[in-house]
Amino acid sequence: MASAAPLDDAVVRRIARLARIRLGDEEVSRLRGELGAILGWIEQLNEVDVSGVDPLASVGQATLAMRADVVTDGDQTEAVLANAPARAGTFYTVPKVVE
């Protein structure tokens, strides 16, 4: 595995940023230890010879069933917005995004 390099704080911060989870400094160092231990334990998969093995994404034994092109859903603006923590009229709202 390519992971032999131990996790450092910068990596923990980078993945937390990718996952959009704010971490305090203490948490970063605690997670560095915990995640490092989990990833270290996972390294046991190095022992397995997987040459020639096709990756398995799902155990579903069929292929994708398709539905007909018929409008069966929508037209429920209030239900879609009912749980919104913030809205304006029939829009969801978020803090202004600057492009």
Binding site: R67, D69, V70, V71, T72, D73, G74, D75, Q76, T77, V80, L81, G89, T90, F91, Y92
Partner: peptide, 23 residues
Amino acid sequence: SRAKLFSGASAEYGAPPNSQVSF
């Protein structure tokens, strides 16, 4: 197409906001 790629909501252009939205 009439409906969206993965849901049965209409794909038509120009409807009132959030009126063609499935969960």
